[in-house]
């Protein structure tokens, strides 16, 4: 069964499909699947620019946004994406769920599953929570961020934004700076950008660099000047104040002095550099306000593109290509 879709979307569809029931992470996506999502997102972006921002692609489909962690940007972005595709959406936040009564994640999922949703979008503080759901649910699971593991739609929207600006991903020098250890955005971006041929540098204090980082196919350094030199893209990662319980660096002031993205450091990069941040930003910690609000910043474009990319993912997993939904 294929859902009715717009011409624009039909034209944008590549010959391939997402060869999976779920989107758990970028690590297991093939480059052509990534390209398919990005291509599809271009068509979806056009939908968002129309006066009537709605297509019937997911009409009659039920999407549950199951969020066990506070999130404004990601949840809103998914919800708008779902509504533009005409899905019936339902938001469950942790405070209003039965989880506070001691129900396990597995039981919560099975109870939701009993009501036959087509897709569950999950945000959870435990790495691998989506994998657990994926094993026990027939619904498509979309990972909206699991612990320190992955945040695949963020990496896809980042790639979409880079591609839109730079017309390519291959061969670009991308410097990712910040709290590498705790960042799911980092992991998804590393997987995506290395698969697509970018030259990825990561930079942060040694206390926040994950073990064996070289095996991810990236260059790691604690010298920010080296990381940003001639960079086409600089991506700042949030210093997760809420996870700094273990004193990973002496002070926020010192962090900004050593690793903060300032206008002076920006001058080391390629003249056409773009500055990205997945948000929410700590101004004056990982990024100076002049940089965040300056001409190189594409931070708000990332947010805008998030809707189109999530429309593409929702569409490809639950209504578009593939035949899982027909089973």
């Amino acid at each position: 069964m294929s859902a009715p879709v717009t011409t624009a979307v039909d034209e944008a569809r590549a010959a391939t499909a997402l060869r999976r029931k779920d989107l758990l992470g970028i690590a297991d996506l093939a480059p052509d699947e990534i390209a398919l999502v990005l291509d599809t997102a271009e068509a979806m972006k056009e939908v968002g620019e129309r006066p009537i921002k709605k297509v019937p692609a997911l009409r009659g489909k039920t999407v549950v946004n199951l969020f066990f962690e506070p999130s404004t940007r990601t949840r809103t972005s998914f919800e708008i994406a779902e509504k533009r595709l005409s899905a019936d959406t339902l938001n469950i936040a942790v405070a209003s769920s039965s989880v506070v009564k001691g129900e396990t994640l597995a039981d919560t999922a099975l109870n939701l599953e009993a009501m036959h949703p087509d897709t569950i979008v999950l945000r959870h503080s435990s790495s691998g929570a989506c994998h657990l759901l994926s094993r026990i649910c027939r619904s498509a699971i979309i990972n909206a961020g699991d612990g320190m593991h992955e945040h695949p739609t963020q990496a896809l929207l980042d790639a979409f934004t880079i591609r839109e600006r730079k017309k390519r991903l291959a061969g670009l020098k991308v410097a990712i700076v910040g709290d590498l250890l705790h960042s799911r955005v980092l992991r998804s971006n590393i997987h995506l950008l290395t698969k697509m041929g970018s030259d990825v540098w990561v930079c942060g204090p040694p206390t926040l660099i994950p073990a064996d980082i070289a095996r991810f196919g990236v260059r790691a350094t604690s010298r920010i000047d080296e990381a940003v030199a001639d960079a086409d893209v600089i991506m700042l990662l949030r210093v997760q104040l809420e996870r700094m319980e273990g004193a990973f660096f002496p002070s926020l002031r010192e962090y900004f002095n050593v690793f903060g993205m300032t206008e002076a450091r920006l001058r080391l990069a390629h003249p056409d550099v773009i500055i990205m941040h997945p948000g929410p930003m700590n101004r004056g910690v990982e990024i100076a306000s002049e940089v965040a609000d300056g001409p190189y910043s594409v931070i708000l474009e990332q947010v805008a593109n998030g809707v189109a990319v999530r429309m593409a993912v929702l569409y490809l997993l639950s209504g578009g290509a593939g035949d899982e939904a027909a089973a």
């Binding site: 612990g147 593991h149 992991r187």
Partner: peptide, 20 residues
């Protein structure tokens, strides 16, 4: 600390806190 896995590539890739 509150590590749940061996500190190394796998813990890093899976986003799990590692103990060396």
């Amino acid at each position: 600390g509150d590590a749940v896995a061996h500190e190394g590539y796998q813990a890093a890739a899976l986003g799990l806190r590692g103990m060396p």
